[in-house]
Every structure is written in C-alpha cells, then in structure tokens.
Amino acid sequence: MRTTLDLPDDVLRRAKIAAVERGSSLRQLVTDALRHEIEGATPSTRRRMTSPPIKLAADAPLRKLSPDAVKRLDTESVAEADAARAHAVRR
C-alpha cells in the first residue's frame, strides 16, 4: 500500500543513512521500524491499574456519583477556577 509521510528533514536524512548502512531500502527500514514499534506495544508491557489512584472513605459522597457526573464536576470546577483567575486579572 502506498502512503505519504511528512518527516522532519533531519529524521529522513538519518533514516536514509541508516538504510544504506544496513544495505536495505528506506522502505524496508521504515517497515521494520514500524513492525518493531507495533510488536513492542503488546498489552503485556502495559501495567494494569489494580487500585484506584486515590482512596475514598466507604461513605464518601463521590463514590455514589457516576463517571459522567464526576466529569461534570471536574469541568465545572475548572470553569470556576478560570473565572476566578479572569476576575483577579481584571482587578
């Protein structure tokens, strides 16, 4: 399959040199590099989170909220903080 990549000049130059030094084509170098990157990102290399990043008391009100409700709270608090900063700048 044909595709176009927009690479920084220095990266392309180094890739061409590496391909010549390996005795292969730029196409083969890019293919090998992509395969290596994709195969290296297997789920076994990723660590699954086994405990929550914060601890809440069993009766904490936040435990009763849905993930969407928590996102709304976070969005509202960010908006309030932005408004407070804007108000402070105007003073």
Results as ranks from 00 to 15, higher is better:
53 P>N: 08
77 S>C: 10
59 D>G: 13
61 P>W: 06
52 P>G: 07
68 D>W: 14
70 V>P: 01
73 L>S: 02
84 A>H: 03
70 V>M: 10
63 R>A: 06
83 A>D: 08
56 L>K: 07
57 A>H: 12
53 P>H: 10
88 A>Y: 03
62 L>F: 08
83 A>W: 04
69 A>D: 15
66 S>H: 09
68 D>K: 08
66 S>E: 14
84 A>G: 01
69 A>M: 13
81 A>Q: 06
55 K>H: 11
77 S>R: 15
73 L>Q: 10
55 K>G: 05
66 S>R: 14
62 L>T: 04
61 P>E: 00
57 A>S: 13
77 S>T: 13
73 L>P: 01
72 R>Q: 12
75 T>A: 13
71 K>I: 12
88 A>M: 05
63 R>T: 11
56 L>F: 13
81 A>V: 04
51 S>P: 00
86 A>I: 07
85 R>A: 12
86 A>P: 00
61 P>K: 02
80 E>Y: 06
70 V>W: 05
64 K>R: 15
79 A>R: 15
57 A>N: 10
50 T>P: 00
63 R>F: 04
82 D>V: 15
63 R>S: 07
76 E>I: 12
79 A>Y: 01
82 D>H: 14
88 A>T: 01
88 A>Q: 09
58 A>Y: 01
74 D>A: 12
77 S>Q: 13
68 D>T: 10
87 H>V: 06
62 L>P: 01
50 T>M: 05
75 T>S: 11
71 K>S: 00
51 S>V: 10
51 S>N: 04
52 P>C: 06
75 T>H: 13
86 A>E: 12
70 V>D: 02
79 A>I: 03
77 S>L: 15
65 L>I: 02
67 P>H: 07
66 S>P: 02
87 H>E: 13
51 S>G: 04
61 P>H: 02
76 E>K: 10
68 D>A: 11
60 A>K: 08
74 D>E: 10
81 A>C: 02
85 R>E: 10
83 A>P: 01
87 H>L: 14
56 L>A: 06
56 L>Y: 07
87 H>R: 15
61 P>I: 02
72 R>W: 12
79 A>G: 05
63 R>V: 09
83 A>E: 11
53 P>D: 09
78 V>T: 09
63 R>Y: 04
56 L>R: 15
78 V>I: 14
84 A>M: 03
57 A>T: 11
61 P>C: 00
67 P>E: 08
61 P>A: 05
69 A>I: 05
82 D>T: 12
83 A>I: 01
66 S>N: 03
73 L>Y: 08
81 A>M: 07
76 E>N: 06
66 S>T: 15
69 A>C: 04
72 R>G: 00
83 A>Y: 05
50 T>L: 09
85 R>Q: 11
79 A>T: 09
68 D>G: 13
77 S>Y: 09
